[in-house]
């Protein structure tokens, strides 16, 4: 059906369009990452490659921050491996929407399943009812035989459009940071933007008591275990923070 092709393209472009405003928020992180990577001594080509193979802003910032602090292989792998674990949640949340797709589609969509692409795509999937007028209109202009489900199925193109836009924005802003980074004198201390970014994100995340307990204990732990080699103290601090968070959740549940 020729009509499916144009609808697919329409979904893809709609995904690109809806993801675009988020790039305003993402681009500064990409640039900060690029600049901080150079400051940490990462070769530019490798910093750019990392944006393609890791493709997770927070983890990439954590990696360069830890490299700059002289952390070893194992602590960095453990910390960023833990931090990225949240993607399993996104994956679980998307499972019902994409389980019918062929494996090659799921392999592709998994690659673009990042925070910001997830945020946009999950809204499109949840809009099912709100979008029915739109879908009915499309069905009217095409063959009726396809029915609602076939139109609904094309939302993976929307997901791909959102993911692709984010991917392109992330690569370009990384490149901009790397280009910019070589010209900036170290006195500007732009590497300080990384802990500032963590402070900003932390404030947004600390809404509930258990999360606050986890953060406080992890921060104190980072100081208490500062002397551990290879920055392993950071891993210990995070694990201790998670324990404190879980303990607080349990205690609040008992108090109820």
């Amino acid at each position: 059906m020729a009509h499916t092709g144009t609808s697919a393209r329409r979904e893809f472009l709609a995904g690109c369009r809806d993801e675009a405003p988020l790039l305003l928020g993402v681009a500064p992180f990409g640039m900060i990452y690029g600049i901080a990577a150079l400051a940490a001594g990462v070769p530019a080509w490798l910093a750019q490659l990392a944006s393609a193979i890791v493709f997770a802003g927070a983890a990439q910032l954590v990696i360069v921050q830890m490299l700059a602090a002289g952390a070893g292989f194992v602590p960095i792998a453990l910390t960023s491996g833990l931090l990225n674990l949240r993607h399993v949640l996104y994956s679980a949340s998307m499972a019902d929407y994409v389980h019918h797709l062929p494996r090659r589609w799921r392999l592709l969509l998994a690659y673009v399943l990042t925070d910001e692409a997830y945020a946009v795509a999950v809204l499109r999937y949840q809009q099912r009812h709100a979008g029915e007028a739109d879908q009915a209109e499309q069905a009217d202009s095409g063959t009726q035989a396809g029915g609602m489900d076939q139109v609904a199925d094309l939302r993976h193109w929307y997901f791909l459009g959102a993911g692709f836009t984010l991917w392109a924005g992330w690569q370009l802003s990384t490149a901009a940071g790397l280009l910019f980074g070589t010209t900036i004198p170290p006195e500007w201390e732009l590497d300080f933007a990384v802990p500032l970014t963590f402070i900003a994100l932390l404030t947004l995340l600390l809404r509930e008591r258990a999360g606050q307990a986890a953060a406080l204990v992890a921060a104190l732990g980072a100081l208490a275990f500062a002397a551990l080699p290879y920055k392993l103290g950071l891993v210990a601090a995070i694990v201790l923070g998670l324990t404190a968070g879980a303990w607080t959740v349990r205690r609040l549940e008992h108090a109820r």
């Binding site: 927070a58 954590v62 921050q65 830890m66 602090a69 910390t79 833990l82 931090l83 674990l85 949240r86 399993v88 949640l89 990384v194 802990p195 963590f198 402070i199 994100l201 932390l202 995340l205 600390l206 258990a210 999360g211 606050q212 986890a214 953060a215 406080l216 204990v217 992890a218 921060a219 104190l220 732990g221 980072a222 100081l223 500062a226 002397a227 551990l228 080699p229 920055k231 103290g233 950071l234 601090a237 995070i238 923070g241 998670l242 968070g245 879980a246 959740v249």
Partner: peptide, 25 residues
């Protein structure tokens, strides 16, 4: 349950370390 607290714990530990730890002290 675990995932909910990973980001706050990680960012807090890294911020504290970036601000107040130098050369393992």
């Amino acid at each position: 349950a675990l995932c909910r607290h990973i980001a706050p714990a990680s960012f807090a530990a890294l911020t504290a370390s970036a601000l107040f730890v130098a050369g393992g002290e």
